[in-house]
Structure formats: C-alpha cells, structure tokens
Design a binder for these strands. Sequence first.
RNA 1: GGGCGGAUAGCUCAGUUGGGAGAGCAUCGGCCUUACAAGCCGGGGGUCACAGGUUCGAAUCCUGUUCCGCCUACCA
Length: 888
Amino acid sequence: MSEILEKVYDPGRIEEKWYRFWEKHGLFTARADGSRPPYCIVIPPPNITGSLHMGHALNNTLQDILIRWKRMQGCDALWMPGTDHAGIATQNVVERMLAQEGADRHQVGREAFIDRVWRWKEESGGMIISQLKRLGCSCDWSRERFTMDEGLSRAVREVFVRLHEEGLIYQGDYIINWCPRCQTALADLEVEHEPKDGHLYHIKYPLEGREGGVVVATTRPETLLGDTAVAVNPDDPRYQGLHGATLRLPILGRKIPLITDPHVSLEFGTGALKVTPAHDFNDFEIARRHHLPAVQALDERGRMTEAAGKYEGLDRFACREKILKDLKSDGLLVKVETYSHAVGHCYRCRTVVEPLISKQWFVAVKSLAEPALDAVRQGRIRLIPEAWEKSFFDWMLNIRDWCISRQIWWGHRIPAWTCEACGRVTVAREDPAACPRCGDRRLVQETDVLDTWFSSALWPFSTLGWPDDTPELRLFYPTNVLVTAFDILFFWVARMMMMGLHCVGEVPFREVYIHALVRDAEGQKMSKSKGNIVDPLELMDAYGTDAFRFSLAAFAAMGRDIRLSEERVVGYRNFVNKVWNASRFTLMNLADFEPDRPDALPLSEVERWLMSRLQEVSGAVGAHLEAYQFDQAAHVLYQFIWHEFCDWYLEFSKPALAPGVDEVRRHHSQRVLADLLGAILRLLHPFMPFITEEIWHKLPGAAGSIMTAPYPVGDPALMDPAAEAEMGLVMEAVTAIRNLKAEMNVPAAAAVEVAVLSDSAQALAMLERHAGAVRLLARVQTLSWNPDGGPPAASAKAVLAAPGGGSVELLMPLAGLIDFREEERRLNREMDKLSREMAQAQKKLANEDFLAKAPAEVVAREQERLATFTEKLGKLKQHQKRLRALLG
RNA sequence: GGGCGGAUAGCUCAGUUGGGAGAGCAUCGGCCUUACAAGCCGGGGGUCACAGGUUCGAAUCCUGUUCCGCCUACCA
C-alpha cells in the first residue's frame, strides 16, 4: 500500500509553505471594487513594542475565523491590519536603551530622539506582524497601516483642528494625573487603582488666637504643606462654633481658614478635611467653589517644592516620613490608624501617580458621547454579549473630559503654535509661517504630543483613507464587526464610536464582539511579574498552529474568562491528527479514483444519513459563527467529524470501498467520500487553515486554494429524517451488541450469534438491510431473524425501541461463553435504571395539573417515553424470569 | 460605595426562548479490528453552592445568603 500521507501529522513543515503560497497568490488582498458584498474588520492594532501574547492570539484567531469564513462565502473580505505607535511604551523602550548608553533623551535632543525611535521601529517593531503571520492571519498586508504614518497623521491633524474649531478641544490649567517617572500627564483611564495598606494619620491644626485645634485625617500627610484650608460639613455639630475660624498650618505656621462644604462627610475620619487644591481632585473642586488659592508643594518629579520650606527637594515619600517625625515631636500627630485605600498607578510603569495642576489639552467629550450612546440605544451598534451595554452606558453617562496632551516626544505633535510677539495660539492643518493676528514669524510649536488613543480612535476610518473620499472608505465603512476584549472597551471602543460618528457621520462598526480574557490554568491574569505567561508561540511549536487555533475557538465561550489548559490543547492536537488520519484513509482509497468518470448509482442509505447530518452540521456551524458562538461551532465540528464521520461513516464505507469486489459501487463510494471530505475540509478551514489547505491540494477533484472554495451551507433538500432514523437504529443495535459482549466479558473477537426479535416489521427490515454492517461492526458471526421457536433462554438480552413504535430485542446466547449470574447482575442494573426513569414519567403523568396545563406535545412525549420504558422493562423482566428458571 | 459575572462529574467547562443533566480530560475494563495507540470498543461517576418563592414542571425565572473573580468610584 502506498503511503500517501505520513502516519502522524507534522505541522511544522506545512504551515510556512502555505502561508507563503497564500501571500504569493494575493489571496488576502481585498478587491475593493464593489463586485462582491463587502465584509470588513479592522484589527485592534497591536503596539509596536509588543510581542504576541495569548490575548492577541485569541483575538486574532477569532477575527481570522470570521474573515476566512466570509471570504469563502463569497464576500470581498478586508481584514485591515496595522500597528499602533504606543507613545509612552515605545518612548520608554528607547529611553531605556539610551540609559544603557549613559545618555538621556534631553542630551540627544528631540529630533535625534525621534529618529532613534523610528530606527528602533524599523528594526524591532515588526515582530508582532510576523507572529500574526505565524498564527495564519489572513490580513490584507498590502494595506497595512501604522498610526504614525503619513496618511494617518493627516487624519489626526484634521480631527484635532476640526474639534478645536468646534470648541470641543480646549487648553487650560486643570488638575490632572501625572506620572512622575514618565514625566507626562495621563488620562483618568490610564490610572490603575490598586488597594494598598496605608495609614490614616490624624493631625491637629491649632486654632489661631484661641485654645485648641481641629484634627484632620489624611493618608498623605506630606500634602499638608500645600493646604490652603480645612473644610467641615456645614451641618456638623462638632464644628458649629468654628466656621470661619483661622487655623495655623502645622510646621509652616501658615494661616488658613476653616470653611464649610457639603462635600465633606460627617462619618469619615474626624469630619474635618484638609484642602490641598494642587494635589487632590476633590480639593481642587472645593477650592474652585471657595476661590481658594492653590499651593504647589510637589513638583513634576514628585519632589517637594520651595513652598514646602525646609523640606524642599525631598522625595514625596521621604518627606512623608520626615513630616510625621516632626509632627510627632510637635505633639500634633494625634492618632495613626491602619487603613487600606486605593492608590493610583501609572498603567505603563506602575509608578504612583501624582495629581498636579497643569496646563493641558482636553477634549470636551459630553457632546460626543451622546450620539454614541444613541447609536447603541437604537441598535445601530450592537454589543455582543449585550450585558456589556450596561457598563458602556454607565461609563458614557459619567464621562469626564479627556486629557489628550502628553509631555513626551514620540507621537503626533499637537498642531498649535504660539506667537512669541502677541501670544496668540494658532491651531492649523498646515504649519503656519506667520501669526495670523500680528504677522510675526516667530511661532513656537506646542511641544506636547497627543495621547496614542487619540489616533487609535480614528483607526476604523483613517486606515480606509479618511479624510480623503476613497473607494475603500465608501465600500467598507462602516466596518462589520470589531472584535476585542473588554479591557479596552472604554479606552478604545467608546472613543472610536465618538470619533467615527462625529467625523464621518456614521458608526465605525455595526457590531462589537467582546470576547473573554485569557488567564492561566489557575485563573490568574497572565503577567510578566507573576511569571505565569504562557507563550502562544511555544504552544504553536509544540502542537501546531491549527490545533492551537482550534483550541482558542473552542475556549471562546461568551462572557467568561478563559483558563488556558494545555491538556485541552493536547486534546485538540489529537483531533487535528484524527482529521489527518481520516484524510489519509480517504486518500489511500482514492489513489485510483477517476473524478471525471460518471457515477450512475444513487446515494445509499448510509450516505444519505451522513449527507443529512452534514447539512445539519453545516447549518449549525454557520448559525453559530453568525452569533459569534465560536465554541459551539468548534464543538459541533468536533463531534460530527470524530464521532459520526470517523467512528461510523468510515467504518460503514469500508466494505463498499474494498477493491476488486464491485468496481461500480467502489467508484461511487470513492466519489461520495471525496465529496464528504472536501466539505469537511472546507467547514474546518477557517479554524484550521493549514492542514485543510495541505489535504485539499491532494484531494482529487479539488481545485485552487481552499481559501476560495465555497463554504458549505446546509441544504434542506438533502435532509433525510428517514435515513437518520434507520441508521440510528442500526448504530444503536451495534452499540447494544458491543455492550453485551463487553459487559459479559465476551472477547470482542469471539464469534457470537445474535438473534433479533421484533414485533416491528419495519425495524426488522431496517436491520436486515444493514445486516452486513451490523455483523462487521459488532463482530457477530451469524444473525437470525425472529427464529422459529425463539432463542435459547440462556442468553444475554438488550432491548431497543423501534423507530415506529414497538421494540427490538437482541439476544446473545451465553452457553459456553460466560456465567449466567453475570447476566443476572447486569440485568438488575439495567432494570433499576429503567425503573427509576419510569417512576419519574409515571409521576408526571399521574399529575392532573400536568396533563391539563402542559403543552400537548410535552405530554405526548412523556407518554411515549413511558410506553418505551414499560415495553423495555417488560421484555427484560420476562428474560429475567426465564433466566432464573434456568438457574434453578 | 455602586455595578457586573461566576459557583453543574475528580479537573476544565458547555447547557440559546423553563419540559428527558452534556463534552473534553482524568478514571475503570477490554482491544495492535489492514486511517489513526495522538488510536479503537465498552463502563462508572453529578442533591446543577445554600435557603426560600413563582410554576403542572426550575440547572434555567424571582428574592435572600455564602464564597470567588472583575469593573468602576472624588469619604480624605
């Protein structure tokens, strides 16, 4: 026998070959000519600093499944790829490189630094792209974009200027989150709050001109150096006589007022709140209400300023210790409690962020949020699963202005120029040569750059060519679906909605499929610091990309975290190997197949059964993909291919495929087998692109790439309930006989006789038609049909329900094979089980309310069940009686 | 503080309108049956977290409790 395929599938060789083939033949490239229905997904652009992690692998596998599926359905499928310049993260990477050389960016200078970043990007920034290719992603690389490339930068500038003209972008001094390490402002979202065990310090502020004082409670004693008031609730009885009093700030002795503000809680701490407008968000608001001055006690590096007096130059945490010591010696530290509270950290570098007052650029998002809210409310954008809508609404309704300026160099520089002569700020699409107000040519451009998410927010239309009116934009916008994890729902998805609606006037995507987060096998979020990262590339190396992708799809149940278990990947690797071997079997049997030779035979019963199942499975896979139920789609395919096609169909087909017996029948079976395998490969292709392409090219009659072959859809005309019923009975009979043998400890290979008894002529006819298959698969030597005089009493018996009513009894004579007592024990077990189920059904049917109120079909089904149980049990009882008589 | 999600077989998890508890792995027993030992055949295993309620009927809907996870928030 000629070895067409290796015995075990070896993915390594094949994957690279086919990816090159696809790229070479331009199979990923969208036509964008309107000749086919468009289907478009924009990739969530990975950071250029990143390398492929599990989140990427899942996210992109799901997108590729959708894109390959739609492409096979005949759509002009565009998967728009690209990367994100990741301002802070990328700058950090290059700064670290400089630090190793003993330099910093200020020594190098802005221009040279940016050159350096570009150089780094060219050398190392493409890693994730090659990793996506390794994963099999069928992105249209001919259209790959980068947030800092020329076209996208133009889109960024256009949007900035437009929003500024509309008064939706403004500049001003406000309190913002500041990262003292990255040296830049952060948006609220970029601050991650972590619970931290700290202390609540009770500090006494002495009253000016009278005895006593007011005790405040704070977690950050060092900020008292910037206090400009103490506030109490106006209704707090403890402080009624003190409103308007003057207090002396500890250590510095500065005089500050005691004010009242309803914001202050009566319950918390002492009811007295120290007000530090320059270093606390609430205090900033209070100060605005009361026109209090702000004293900046901390600088941009987190060190104390000269306003801190003798503490000037100290680091904020060192200062805290020093101040506590000084307060103690002054007798002003009244009490220290342990206290757990949330502390904000920079999402890029984990440094504790510092609220600071600073001049920054902001987007007024309220008016942008409203249309996005409406789009979701009206269903023009659908969030899937829907449960996310609530979070989305909550966030959008409480949205605060978005701080978009960053004090870094790598990014889109804000297109604003200040005139050195008259101070006028000009915001323009083109770099201005002179001040439009006074004509002076001494213009200084804003040094800040924009938040990376500002350019990401434009991604669905900037990548399609906006602000130009391109064919791509016309054809593919709005895109069909955005596939993402929930952790960037606010960061990115919401902002794309706002920008898309505002700039293009239409939603950026019609659906948002929000998938789970990948965690490790213990359910922990993967992170470098925990050391629990599972590298997707290692899994691909070990088990093959197809197995890995199929695993991810199978894991992707909606609305739940995924725990990555390597054992399951092994399981799906085995499935891939099963597909390989079923193909190997098929191809071995097709070695002499002539695809063009006519085949006059109609489909056999077995073939009609599997064809029927194939239609149902095809329909189900399509419906599941349509609903983003990737796990269900994978599961349906797995069950069908392994447990119906391989376990049963291939076994059934063996006799007809035997060479030299009936060549006409053999040729017919070959043709059907080739068709079936072709359909299975096509169904699997979006999940397992590599192995399916490899086998497709060896399959007689298959032409071109499987990528362009039509995806099977269920054809109702090929559904065949009669064939399904018939084969159902046959398979049940085979299983029942195998079961009798196994339970009776009869060797599987033993030549046994089986007598079939039935009151159903139809059932008998069905089994007789497939007698050969039953004998082969159940390993029975002879079958007898309703034998005269009945079968011997000394038998093991199984009872099946016949499809049209009645029953089928299978009797296997035990004489000389086993101990009858074993059969008695087995019978008891079986009868116990049946009795339990029967009692359940009887109880239901005895309930008059059930008969009266349950739908007729439910009642009928229950009656049918009861009848079946009763019949089976009766037959088994009778058998038991005869057996007992025999045993004495 | 507010919100969301989860608790189903030893493990990891499905279970879409309420109507016969499932899969994979693990486990036990038997098989080199000429595609596959990464395999084949067969078996065992669950008070669906707990307590109430609605219903003829609840893993599924409602209320409450416990435990776990996440998001979000201006009580310092």
